[in-house]
């Protein structure tokens, strides 16, 4: 029985095995999955892109965008300024004084912009996301901005609140209710366009 034991293996066999495995696992498998996904789920496969009514790509439902204007809902603080190619969290520890300073700055901005007071601010408006491109805020964080947006757009508050509700995702069994900021702002823009030119398509 001992005579049939393999006591050595050749380097050449390892080399050939490596090539075969790399072609199978590193080229063929991704190709099959990518091709199948493209056929079955073309919208998701190419990045869940969002288009405006003119057909221009304005974003992806999965990627948050930076907003500055008063007529827009604003997303969470981002360590990457919402650049997906540089996606990052802040990686600041709770004990880091830099995090406290950043938060105090943010509080001052929110006080001026939305009249929120310290001690009542929804935490996601102060805490940076992990990805730096979180497309969502909590419903509370959206409602806190609703009066400002309503005023800036000249829209009644209930209409803005309805728009928030329409842009709220994951209210079912899984996940936390989350308002997609880009979808919400896009819907408000489209609504404004339609009202300005009701005869247009």
């Amino acid at each position: 029985m001992n005579t049939s034991l393999m006591t050595r293996t050749s380097l050449l066999a390892s080399l050939r095995l490596m090539v075969v495995l790399a072609v199978l696992l590193g080229l063929l498998y991704p190709f099959v999955v990518t091709t199948l996904s493209g056929l079955l789920f073309p919208h998701q496969a190419s990045g869940s892109l969002l288009y405006d009514s003119q057909g221009n790509v304005v974003g992806s439902t999965l990627v948050g965008q930076p907003f500055l204007g008063a007529q827009y809902f604003h997303g969470r603080p981002s360590a990457a300024d919402y650049a997906p190619d540089a996606a990052a969290g802040s990686n600041l520890a709770p004990s880091n004084p830099v995090l406290r300073e950043r938060t105090l700055d943010e509080v001052r901005t929110l006080q001026e912009r939305d009249g929120l007071s310290a001690g009542e601010i929804p935490v996601d408006l102060l805490a940076a996301s992990g990805s730096g491109i979180d497309p969502h805020i909590t419903p509370a964080a959206a409602l806190a901005q609703a009066p400002r947006v309503s005023q800036a757009r000249g829209l009644p508050l209930p209409a803005v609140e309805n728009a928030i509700q329409a842009a709220t995702e994951y209210t079912g069994l899984l996940g936390e209710p989350a308002v997609n900021v880009l979808r919400l702002n896009l819907a408000l823009n489209e609504r404004a366009l339609n009202e300005r030119s009701p005869t247009d398509e």
């Binding site: 935490v123 996601d124 805490a127 992990g130 979180d134 969502h136 909590t138």
Partner: peptide, 15 residues
């Protein structure tokens, strides 16, 4: 600063 009782959301995603 944040609403009382908020969890640690720094570095976490809303969803």
């Amino acid at each position: 600063l944040a609403a009382a009782g908020s969890p640690n959301m720094e570095g976490k995603e809303v969803r």
